[in-house]
Amino acid sequence: EEKRQVKQVAKEKLLEQSPNSKVQVRRVQKQGNTIRVELELRTNGKKENYTVEVERQGNTWTVKRITRT
């Protein structure tokens, strides 16, 4: 359940930055209360990979860091 929520948060964050792209989740890793989500962003056939680190704060998820990989 929490992985599902985190995927959603990570996707939304990337789509905010580039709204007309397609996002696909590649991998989800958990480390303590930080969850790392690896995503693939496609814009006009151009692929970019991103890693989004999401942290739990109380009962909400906040995006800590977005890295292009």
Rank of each mutant, 00 (worst) to 15 (best):
Val25Asp: 00
Arg56Met: 08
Thr62Trp: 14
Lys13Phe: 12
Arg26Asp: 02
Val23Cys: 05
Lys11Trp: 05
Glu2Lys: 03
Ser18Val: 12
Val52Ser: 00
Lys64Phe: 09
Val25Leu: 04
Gln29Lys: 09
Val25Thr: 03
Arg27Cys: 06
Glu55His: 08
Val54Gly: 01
Asn44Leu: 11
Lys13Leu: 07
Arg27Asp: 05
Thr43Gln: 12
Ser21Val: 05
Asn49Arg: 14
Arg42Phe: 15
Glu2His: 07
Lys30Cys: 08
Glu12Leu: 06
Pro19Trp: 02
Val28Arg: 01
Thr69Phe: 07
Thr43Cys: 05
Glu38Lys: 09
Lys46Gly: 07
Trp61Ser: 01
Thr51Asp: 04
Leu15Gly: 02
Thr69Lys: 09
Thr67His: 08
Arg4Gln: 11
Leu41Ala: 08
Val37Leu: 06
Lys7Met: 15
Leu39Pro: 00
Asn33Gln: 09
Arg65Tyr: 09
Ile66Cys: 03
Arg42Gln: 10
Ser18Cys: 11
Glu38Pro: 00
Ile35Glu: 01
Gly32Tyr: 05
Val63Ala: 04
Arg68Asp: 03
Gln17Asp: 06
Tyr50Pro: 00
Asn59Thr: 10
Thr62Ala: 13
Arg65Met: 11
Thr69Asp: 10
Gly45Thr: 07
Lys47Ser: 11
Lys22Gly: 05
Lys46Glu: 07
Arg26Ile: 14
Lys46Phe: 10
Lys46Trp: 10
Arg56Phe: 11
Val9Arg: 04
Lys64Met: 15
Thr67Glu: 09
Thr34Phe: 10
Leu14Asp: 01
Thr51Gln: 07
Arg36Tyr: 15
Arg42Asn: 14
Gln5Val: 10
Lys7Asn: 06
Arg27Thr: 06
Arg56Glu: 03
Lys13Gln: 05
Glu16Gly: 05
Asn33Asp: 12
Thr51Asn: 04
Glu55Arg: 05
Leu15Ser: 03
Lys64Gln: 08
Gln31Asp: 12
Val37Met: 03
Val23Pro: 03
Val9Met: 11
Leu41Asp: 01
Asn20Met: 08
Arg56Trp: 14
Val9Glu: 02
Glu55Tyr: 12
Arg36Ala: 08
Trp61His: 02
Gln57Lys: 10
Glu40Leu: 12
Gly45Leu: 06
Ile35Ala: 10
Arg65Cys: 06
Lys11His: 03
Glu40Pro: 00
Ile66Asn: 00
Glu38Gly: 05
Gln24Val: 14
Glu2Thr: 10
Lys22Pro: 02
Leu15Val: 04
Asn59Tyr: 11
Glu38Asp: 12
Arg56Gln: 07
Arg4Glu: 14
Val28Thr: 05
Ser18Arg: 10
Leu39Asn: 00
Gln57Met: 12
Val23Asp: 00
Val25Tyr: 04
Thr69Val: 11
Glu48Asp: 06
Arg36Trp: 14
Glu48Thr: 09
Thr34Asn: 07
Pro19Gln: 03
Gln5Leu: 12
Thr43Trp: 09
Gln17Cys: 09
Arg68His: 09
Thr34Glu: 04
Thr43Pro: 01
Arg56Ala: 06
Lys11Gln: 07
Gln24Gly: 04
Tyr50Ile: 05
Ala10Asp: 01
Val63Ile: 07
Trp61Glu: 00
Thr62Ser: 10
Arg65Glu: 08
Lys46Asn: 11
Arg68Tyr: 06
Arg27Asn: 08
Arg26Tyr: 07
Lys22Ile: 13
Gln5Gly: 09
Gln17Trp: 08
Gly32Pro: 02
Ala10Lys: 01
Glu1Tyr: 04
Gln57Glu: 14
Asn20Tyr: 05
Val63Asn: 00
Pro19Ile: 03
Thr34Asp: 04
Thr60Tyr: 10
Leu39His: 00
Gln57Phe: 12
Arg27His: 09
Thr67Lys: 07
Glu55Gly: 05
Asn44Ser: 10
Val25Trp: 03
Gln31Arg: 13
Thr62Asn: 08
Lys46Ile: 13
Gly58Lys: 06
Asn44Phe: 10
Thr34Leu: 12
Gln31Phe: 14
Asn49Ala: 09
Arg68Trp: 04
Gln24Lys: 15
Leu41Tyr: 02
Gln57Cys: 07
Gly58Ala: 06
Lys30Leu: 13
Asn59Leu: 09
Arg65Val: 07
Glu2Pro: 04
Leu41Cys: 06
Leu15Pro: 01
Gln17His: 12
Arg42Thr: 15
Leu15Asn: 02
Leu39Thr: 02
Thr43Ser: 11
Val37Lys: 00
Glu53Thr: 09
Glu16Asn: 05
Leu14Ala: 05
Val9Cys: 05
Leu41Val: 13
Ile66Leu: 05
Gln29Glu: 12
Leu14Trp: 02
Gln57Trp: 11
Val28Met: 14
Tyr50Cys: 03
Val6His: 02
Thr62Phe: 14
Thr43His: 12
Arg26Asn: 07
Lys64Ile: 15
Gln57Val: 14
Gln8Arg: 11
Ile66His: 01
Gln8Ile: 10
Ala10Gln: 01
Ile66Trp: 04
Tyr50Ser: 00
Glu55Asp: 05
Glu53Tyr: 14
Leu15Thr: 04
Asn44Pro: 06
Val28Ala: 05
Lys47Tyr: 11
Arg68Phe: 08
Thr62His: 12
Lys30Gln: 14
Leu14Ser: 02
Trp61Thr: 02
Arg42Asp: 14
Pro19Asn: 03
Arg68Met: 12
Glu1Cys: 09
Lys3Gln: 14
Thr62Gly: 07
Lys3Ser: 13
Val63Asp: 00
Val63Lys: 00
Glu38Ala: 09
Gln24His: 14
Lys3Asn: 14
Lys3Ile: 15
Gly45Met: 07
Glu16Ile: 04
Thr34Lys: 06
Ile35Gln: 03
Thr69Cys: 07
Leu39Trp: 01
Lys11Val: 15
Asn33Met: 10
Val52His: 00
Glu12His: 07
Asn33Phe: 09
Gln5Tyr: 09
Gly45Val: 04
Gln8Tyr: 03
Lys30His: 13
Gly58Tyr: 05
Val6Trp: 07
Leu39Ser: 01
Arg65Thr: 13
Lys46Gln: 11
Lys11Phe: 06
Gly45Asn: 08
Arg68Ser: 05
Glu55Met: 11
Pro19Thr: 03
Arg26Trp: 06
